[in-house]
Design a binder for these strands. Structure first.
Length: 591
DNA sequence: GTGAAGGGCCAC
DNA sequence: AAACGTGGCCCTTCAC
């Protein structure tokens, strides 16, 4: 493909270029950087393309003459990038948005992300990859040469090949978007695409903001865990060795407590009827009869803490900011949920000793807000079940109210067991729980479990009907959707009963879990707009929870904005039951 | 040594 | 086959 491009190194040419470009509806957009993290490297090129004409702006030349964030020379570029129009089309716009925000000091306005769009269209098909090369080949049928991607973007003089590569990537965005828009329309994904695109900037900014971890506190916590780990490990070694102690003249032989095979052998030697797998839920029932099993589970707990939540997280603290800048994948799961890694700050143990290490720096506060039982409220909304809705409208403790309805007693007469049964079913229905699993988790007999589940679904007939319909629908249409229209496709073999039942559970769960993700993403967009220009910063999200950090003086204001954004987002999708958000202002993540 | 697979467990 | 959904990370084991 022959493309026209122009390398821009001076203010006057840039001003003229921006003057022309700002009248376009859409622009292909890309950047070239010397590193992957904006805190480490420099932003070398910004490319903007109409498809026919591509401007490649060499910021190295501008940086030599002044600060990129304030330089008057760059004002036309900053304005163009910040404006909602033209829409900037990028592949993984989060990446470019972070560099633009950090190095040019502007929030990217008006985004179309070909990566997110491709993921929405693929609708959970694991076979599809979403690199720019793959996406281009899928939608345009052309191959992209990415060989210059890792070339030296620090060189004083860029090669013609580098500049051409940079220009071509931006130019490709124009035809690529056209094809993708056709597909989004055909699949009725335009609304959810907008939802996702609006979320890019909030997430880019959150990653730049980072989440503060008090390293000293974390180390203290680690020391405590290490001590108990050593103690528990020794006790477990001794208990496991009891079966073979006589066999050794040198006391007991140490085994690797982390080795499944060695531990299983040792348990067998002790006469423990070891189940097929030694996972916690299988072993738990044996703990009462075999103290060694209880000790093993205790060991696993501390070992997990020490490995997954040990020293390694400290290596992720950025030396420049002193904070954790985790990597969030916006469409991390087919349901639309985020995933998080390096480090995964969505799986920090709930235990206070861990959570309290994540705290507000001096003079700042954390504002922690989470949706109260949002998935159950979504289920109530979808099913239109009047009893289920009433349980929420009453405003009383939901599980108690539900138990009163299911067991037909007054709320004040609900026993602890009854509430617990109702609570476990309330959570379980969202995942498509069966009586077998319910029996296992409650310790009830199969028939008692079935009996309680019958009572439950007799009380909530509308809920039962919705769940059955979701199963039926996924079988006939092989597709499930959330309230925003997000889609998940299911492929399974007609003969494979296991795959069928999995798809049916997915058909029930995906719309619920996915709508929760829709709501969170919508809230992030509203929040981002509300807190612009204040001291409030988004610092973490955990599926139904949003954490903001703000100056202590602004905490009340930020809490108010956060609550309003979350409620408004929820109410866009939920109207039959109230949306409840719990907000607190704290010094630490815990409490 | 390195990498994939399997088992296990943390979060919501 | 956890017949309860979505992720990521750690460890061991095993093949190359």
């Amino acid at each position: 493909m022959e493309i026209y491009f122009q390398l821009i190194t001076d203010a006057e040419t840039l001003r003229k270029a921006c003057e022309d470009l700002k009248n376009e509806d859409v622009l292909g957009f890309d950047t070239e950087t010397t590193e992957l993290s904006p805190y480490d490297g420099t932003l070398r090129l910004v490319q903007l393309s109409t498809g026919k004409d591509t401007k490649v702006i060499d910021l190295k030349q501008f940086a030599a003459r002044g600060d990129l964030r304030t330089s008057k020379e760059l004002a036309p570029l900053r304005d163009l990038l910040a404006a909602p129009k033209p829409i900037k089309i990028a592949h993984n716009a989060k990446f470019d948005a972070k560099w633009i925000s950090h190095h040019l000091g502007v929030q990217l306005g008006g985004t179309f992300d070909t990566l997110l769009a491709s993921q929405l269209i693929a609708a959970g098909d694991d076979g599809r990859r979403h690199s720019l090369g793959e996406v281009t080949s899928h939608f345009l049928g052309t191959e992209l040469d990415k060989s210059e991607q890792v070339s030296d973007w620090n060189a004083p003089e860029l090669s013609q090949s580098q500049i051409e590569y940079a220009a071509r990537d931006a130019a490709t965005m124009i035809p690529l978007r056209e094809k993708i828009v056709e597909r989004l329309k055909a699949d009725e994904l335009v609304k959810v695409a907008k939802l996702e695109f609006d979320c890019v900037m909030p997430i880019a900014q959150m990653e730049l903001n980072g989440f503060y971890l008090d390293a000293a506190r974390w180390r203290e916590q680690l020391e405590r865990v290490k001590v108990s780990q050593a103690k528990v490990a020794l006790e477990l070694q001794q208990m496991l060795a009891a079966g073979v102690a006589q066999a050794s003249l040198f006391g007991f032989t140490e085994i690797n407590l982390d080795s499944q095979t060695q531990v299983t052998d040792a348990l067998k030697n002790l006469g423990v009827p070891v189940p097929e797998t030694t996972r916690g839920w299988q072993l738990q029932p044996l703990a009462a009869d075999y103290p060694v099993v209880g000790k093993l589970l205790e060991y696993r707990g501390v070992a997990k803490s020490l490995s997954s939540f040990g020293e390694t997280i400290l290596d992720f603290i950025n030396p420049v900011t002193g904070r954790l800048h985790a990597d969030f994948r916006q469409i991390g799961a087919p349901t639309g949920r985020f995933s998080c890694s390096k480090p995964n700050i969505q799986q920090i143990p709930h235990e206070e000793n861990y959570r309290r290490c994540f705290r507000a720096p001096e003079g700042r506060k954390l504002i922690i807000a989470d949706y109260s039982q949002v998935e159950l409220r979504i289920l109530a909304e979808f099913s239109k079940d009047q009893n289920f809705i009433n349980a929420f409208v009453s405003g009383e403790d939901f599980h108690t109210t539900a138990a009163a309805q299911v067991f037909n007693v007054k709320p004040e007469a609900v026993t602890a067991d009854q509430r617990s049964f109702a609570k476990r079913l309330n959570f379980g229905v969202v995942y498509g729980i069966g009586s077998q699993r319910f029996a296992l988790m409650t310790g009830l007999s199969q028939t008692s479990a079935e009996d309680i589940m019958r009572r439950y679904f007799a009380t909530y007939r509308g809920l039962d009907a919705w769940l059955r319909d979701a199963s039926r629908k996924v079988m006939s249409e092989r597709v499930a959707r959330t309230a925003s229209g997000r889609m998940s496709r299911f492929r399974f073999d007609e003969e494979d009963r296991k795959a069928i039942s999995l798809a049916q559970r997915n058909g029930k769960n995906m719309p619920i879990q996915g709508t929760s993700a829709d709501i969170l993403k919508r809230a992030l967009h509203l929040l981002h707009e509300k807190i612009a220009g204040t001291s409030a910063r988004l610092v973490n999200i955990v599926h139904d929870e949003i954490i903001v950090e703000a100056d202590a003086d602004d905490a009340e204001m930020a809490a108010d904005k956060l609550e309003k954004a979350m409620c408004a987002a929820g109410e866009e999708y939920i109207s039959r039951v109230p949306v409840k958000v719990d907000v607190k202002i704290a010094d630490e993540w815990a409490k």
